Amino acid sequence: MAEEKNPIQVADRLFLVMETLAETGPAGLIDLSNRLNLHKSTVHRLLNSLIYMGYARQDQETGKYSLTFKILEISNKVLNKVDVLEIARPHLKRLMQQTGETVHFVQIDGTEAVYIDKVESHQNSVRMVSKVGSRIPLYCSGVGKALLATMKPEAVKKLWEASDIHRLTPHTIIDYSRFLKDLEEIRKKGYALDNEENEEGVRCIAACLTDFKGKAKYAFSISAPVNRMTDERITELSGYVLEMKQQMTQEMS
């Protein structure tokens, strides 16, 4: 099969110049000409075109060319149009089918996480009381602890102090030093557990997702009654959770 070529050669070369400048940083005309294997008069015309459109500029003192922030403006507009639920939904459904358990998807909001999607399991008669739009504290939930485990110590402490810390169940962790040890364990394993800390009789396994800036904004969890969430079952589910975490992080980066 013949190699496909850009039908508009000048467009191909314009983007090649932009990609090269993005990789090298500020560069002179001769350097760019050598790197692109193009005559310097051709590169000069391409650079002038990029400058005219606002994608490049030339330093008047050094004569070197560099990209402007216009490309970032376009990138941000694209990212703002990305529907994270559209990306997440297929993964959430697959995770529910793989495990037979209810799967939640949340977004962090201050000291709480907001349920923004939920895929209920149809394979069991026990339904979770959680609803899309409802909130759950960060300090006593699997999704919340997964998110907090990615943050710097000062951010964790600030959120802890801003939270209304109290026992929701006999298992809720309200001692800060013990809470920090729990977060350290989460960092090692890559996933978090809610051992009946938010709702008695329910255990959850959760993981957070980072966006293209490396910031943890979303998290997902598998929830089930304790009789189906034994330690052995948690170990089994952790494989599915870590796999989904890796796949979704790549798609969102």
Rank of each mutant, 00 (worst) to 15 (best):
L50M: 12
L47I: 12
I74F: 14
T42W: 01
T102P: 02
R45G: 00
R89G: 01
T102W: 04
H104C: 04
L85Q: 10
H44I: 02
K64L: 10
L92V: 07
L67A: 05
Q107Y: 04
T99I: 04
Q58H: 06
Q58S: 07
R57F: 03
I87L: 15
Q97F: 07
S75A: 11
Q58M: 12
R94E: 15
L29T: 09
M53H: 09
N48P: 00
N48A: 04
L92N: 09
D31P: 01
R57Y: 07
V78G: 01
Q97V: 05
H39I: 00
Y52H: 13
D31K: 11
D109E: 13
L79Y: 14
H104R: 11
F105P: 05
P90Y: 04
T111I: 14
I74M: 14
D31Y: 06
D31C: 01
V43W: 11
R57A: 05
D59R: 14
N80K: 13
S41K: 15
I71A: 12
S41M: 09
N80V: 00
V43N: 12
I30N: 12
G63P: 08
K70V: 12
L29M: 09
E86N: 05
Q107F: 02
L67M: 10
L95M: 13
E73W: 03
L50A: 12
L32M: 09
D83G: 03
Q107R: 14
L50V: 10
V103G: 04
Y55F: 15
S75K: 15
Q58P: 01
H104E: 02
D59H: 11
N48W: 02
L92Y: 08
L85Y: 04
V84Q: 08
M53D: 10
S41D: 06
E101G: 01
M53L: 08
H104A: 03
L72V: 07
V82H: 11
Q58W: 05
D59Y: 09
A88D: 08
Q58A: 06
Y65I: 03
S66L: 04
E112G: 02
K93M: 08
L50T: 08
Y65P: 01
V82E: 13
S75L: 11
L79N: 12
E86H: 02
I71V: 12
